[in-house]
Nucleic acid binder design. Structure first.
Lengths: 186, 186
DNA sequence: GTCTATAGCTAGATAGAC
DNA sequence: GTCTATCTAGCTATAGAC
């Protein structure tokens, strides 16, 4: 076989960048091809199911990333809980480019994306919530408090990303991440 | 002239429903025509600038709605501040169908919508913020506290809408609106 | 595995009858 | 003011050469 022109890692990065910036309907296969350096027909070779399969693959990649860089850290027992939180929040900052990038889960959470990818989106949010719920428990909060705080984290992250984008000002996002760190201090 | 088949109010309602559900790229002129009961060519008669002008008109309508039902109430001096807050939050619940509807400002806050409508989106958010900032001042909080609380309101609303949609569970939104009421209690 | 070329379709937008 | 009919461009997807 011919060698792959771009490896899976590069491919996913390019596809995700376009999808989270433009959404499902706004991202054309030409956009996706251009961002990855492949031609349309080559994308169909890698993803025979077309755009739908591309998004499914990217969402699997996102879920894996969350498991590795969010919930995986928070569910581990390395170091102190506060250190796990700091590490996780730094990964969140990197994921969203300090508040400048749109969340791909958000970009797909509309009436065109949800019927196609709702289950995958829900799973990613669920895994994220489970990580932060465990953090609350590790810090001595009870179950219902911990679950509530985990929801609050997601709400702050998603809400501040929208506000930062709309106002063209990264401080809401950055402030919100600081606030999250405070929430978990007794 | 011929009579209008649908009045401006109905027209805006139909257009907004499609746009916030599907976003700018996802909403086709056929979708918009079907939702309003007009044909494509008739939409072009009302909005010669096409889809872009349609969205601009809808965003003007949204801004007016926010001025009337959010900031207008919070900037008034009718009744007690807490009553103004309750009334405003009920309007917010109605706007988003208790958490089931997507925010059109959010739906347009991506790399296809922002270059076209960024200024209008920012203005709507700004007006919303000014209303809640005044509420904080009326309740005795200082300026920087009031501004921070106003941002927190928008973050909670936008973030909980996303979480509610993604998890198919309206409680995050409803809980967040209750939380907002608590924030403003001394 | 990647590419060029193209099929088939739907998009946004326009012309012109009524 | 609304409609049917139509244009062109761009879309998703496929065929087949290398």
């Amino acid at each position: 076989m011919r060698p792959q022109k771009v490896d899976d890692q590069q491919l996913m990065a390019g596809l995700m960048a376009v999808l989270r910036a433009k959404g499902y309907d706004g991202a054309s296969l030409n956009d996706l091809a251009e961002a990855t350096g492949l031609k349309k027909a080559s994308l169909y070779h890698r993803f025979p199911g077309g755009k739908k399969e591309i998004v499914e693959a990217v969402l699997n990649y996102v879920l894996d990333w969350i498991k590795q860089n969010i919930s995986g850290i928070l569910l581990s027992t390395d170091g102190k809980p506060q250190e796990r939180l700091s590490k996780t929040l730094n990964n969140v900052r990197a994921l969203y480019n300090d508040g400048d990038s749109i969340c791909i889960l958000r970009a797909l959470t509309n009436d065109t994306g949800l019927p196609l990818f709702g289950l995958q989106i829900e799973e990613s949010f669920q895994v994220w919530l489970e990580g932060f719920t465990q953090l609350g428990l590790d810090l001595g909060f009870n179950k219902s408090q911990s679950e509530r705080m985990a929801r609050e984290v997601l709400i702050k992250v998603q809400g501040s990303l929208i506000l930062s984008k709309a106002m063209d000002d990264l401080t809401p996002f950055q402030q919100s991440l600081s606030d999250i760190e405070q929430i978990y201090k007794h």
